[in-house]
């Protein structure tokens, strides 16, 4: 049931995704602040399908040359492509402290045992500025294969970016910067090079008192 209703292709399903900051309070406790978060969901057949967005509407927000979003989408499988609009929670006081930990954690599951590669490209005006590539091996748990990218450190570029964003006095200014900031995550089967998931992330700043929010869309080409 999750196909078409959550971030899942026929081969891989995203279970959870978060970018966070951990601030130690004392030697035994710390505060965890979630900038963005996609929690576990268990859609059923009675849930509606995700809304769709025409992938051509966002081509220029992501790399367009070789290996860009267009080429990836045309290669398919097209059921592996999603757009996530995040309303990021920046309601936190940031100080420069080397004890702070900025991290990203994500989890995936599959019915297949494989090795996955996750490429995460941060883009400014559609051009890649930094890329992180991670390889994960499967763990067999409760009848399926689970992949965990646990507490991957946020890169220096992203930490600086968050700090600069926080220094802007008004939310509309932050949103104006975020209009040209995007992230493209491509999860691939390391051995077959098949695209398992491709997720395009775009951002605004949350105005909610309830923290980070998001909408998920299927990317299509009608």
């Amino acid at each position: 049931p999750w196909q078409g209703r959550s971030i899942a292709s026929s081969k891989l399903r995203m279970l959870e995704f978060s970018a966070f900051l951990e601030q130690p309070q004392d030697p035994e406790t710390f505060n965890k602040h979630l900038f963005v978060h996609i929690g576990q969901s268990n859609p059923t057949y009675s849930d509606p399908y995700l809304e769709s967005v025409d992938v051509r509407q966002i081509y220029d927000k992501f790399p367009e040359k070789k290996g860009g979003l267009k080429e990836l989408f045309d290669k398919g499988p097209q059921n592996a492509f999603f757009l996530v609009k995040f309303w990021a929670d920046l309601s936190i006081n940031l100080q420069d402290d080397s004890n702070f930990f900025y991290g990203v954690s994500s989890q995936y599951e599959s019915s297949e045992n494989m090795v996955i590669t996750s490429s995460t490209k941060v883009c400014s005006f559609g051009k890649q500025v930094v890329e992180k590539v991670e390889t994960e091996y499967a763990r067999f748990e409760s009848g399926r294969y689970v992949f965990r990218i646990h507490r991957s450190p946020l890169c220096e570029y992203m930490i600086n970016f968050i700090h600069k964003l926080k220094h802007l006095p008004e939310k509309y200014m932050m949103n104006s910067v975020l209009e040209n900031f995007t992230i493209l995550q491509v999860v691939t089967n390391r051995d077959t090079l098949e695209t398992l998931l491709c997720i395009a992330y775009v951002f605004e700043v949350s105005t909610s008192e309830h923290g980070a929010q998001h909408h998920i869309y299927r990317l299509v080409k009608d």
Partner: peptide, 25 residues
Amino acid sequence: GRAVEQVPMRKRQLPASFWEEPKLT
């Protein structure tokens, strides 16, 4: 300057929900 001026997101064909922040807890 940049050779290509990007179309603002607001002027693109996107679902209405794209601009509606969920108010869920």
